[in-house]
Amino acid sequence: MFKRITLFLATNLAVLVLLGIIMNVVLPMFGIQLGNNGALLVMAALFGFGGSFVSLMLSKWMAKRSTGAHVIQQPANEMEQWLFTTVQRQAQAAGIGMPEVAIYDAPEINAFATGANRNNALVAVSTGLLRAMDRDQAEAVLAHEVSHVANGDMVTMALLQGVLNTFVIVLARVVGRAIDGYLSGGRNEGPGLAYFAIVFVLDMIFGLFASMIAMWFSRHREFRADAGGATLAGREKMIAALERLKINHGENTLPKQVAAFGISGAIGHGLKKLLLSHPPLDVRIEALRNASLDGNAVRQGVVA
């Protein structure tokens, strides 16, 4: 789990550092200066939101390739027919377009949803889930994933990540400029090696805080998806599914692009909890037991 988090953070920080090199080294070589904060904000937004939305547009394709998911075109057996029919019924109840339905080979109990919009999504379940869960539990898991789609969680996460990326890029360079100016005694000699070193460190620090914010929101929307799953499939089925997930012991082999949208999350303690995409299962179960469920909650994306 720690290795997965480290890889996730390293990837995001590498992107931020690359953007910093482009804005502070490459663009000035062509006479493009970003000393003005307005210009910096525009460029940061282009880079920050650009990466998020490219990932969103490619999310289904990347998910299929990275998991080796088999999309059910024509159900080949009774299990595939049940999966397809169940998702179709739930999608109609949630007021969204029919998602693609897929199965991917993985030992843990898991499922995920992804896609660029509510009417062009993908819902996939693991072979481990199909082996370990009964039909009622599996129905609840599918309802949880359909609720993610109905709530527009994929688009919301992309927007949030774009805002956070922009914030990190701008703040690191504004603060870096101020620190560099203070250390140089106010001499206006342009950015030097010290400035780039300061910005590099600030990218990592602010990037870490941005990841914490993104994961906080990810945990929040899991409660909404659980409640949406309970609305579509039934509260007791959803609780039974979460109880069954405990045998996973925090295992989650989904690639990072879709890990936050799986129903099963990793386990963490102390500061690691701030970087988890899912709340603890016991907390989710307790919240579901105490929730007041609204029949229109999934369509509206709101749980009372």
Rank of each mutant, 00 (worst) to 15 (best):
L254R: 11
V170D: 06
G228D: 03
V168L: 01
A132F: 02
V54R: 06
R299P: 00
R89I: 03
S218Y: 00
Q81I: 00
S277N: 12
F167Y: 04
S59H: 05
K237V: 00
N12E: 11
H278Y: 03
V26W: 11
A111F: 06
V141S: 12
Q81F: 06
W82E: 10
A93I: 02
V25P: 04
A233Q: 02
I267A: 01
K64Y: 04
A45K: 08
G262C: 09
A116C: 09
K272T: 15
G192L: 08
V201K: 04
T67D: 01
V168H: 01
G234D: 06
D153P: 05
L293P: 02
E251M: 13
M43F: 12
H144T: 07
R131N: 14
D282M: 07
L27M: 13
H220I: 12
Q33S: 15
D105L: 03
I198N: 04
T114M: 05
L293S: 00
G68Q: 03
I247E: 14
A10H: 09
T156P: 00
V155E: 02
G185Y: 10
D180G: 14
T127S: 15
N151Q: 10
Q73K: 14
M238W: 01
I263W: 01
L27R: 03
Q74C: 07
E80Q: 14
V175I: 15
A140W: 02
L183S: 13
G35M: 08
A210H: 07
Q257L: 13
V146F: 11
I22N: 04
Q33T: 13
A304Q: 07
V174A: 09
S264M: 07
D294Y: 00
A106Y: 08
N110F: 10
I267Y: 05
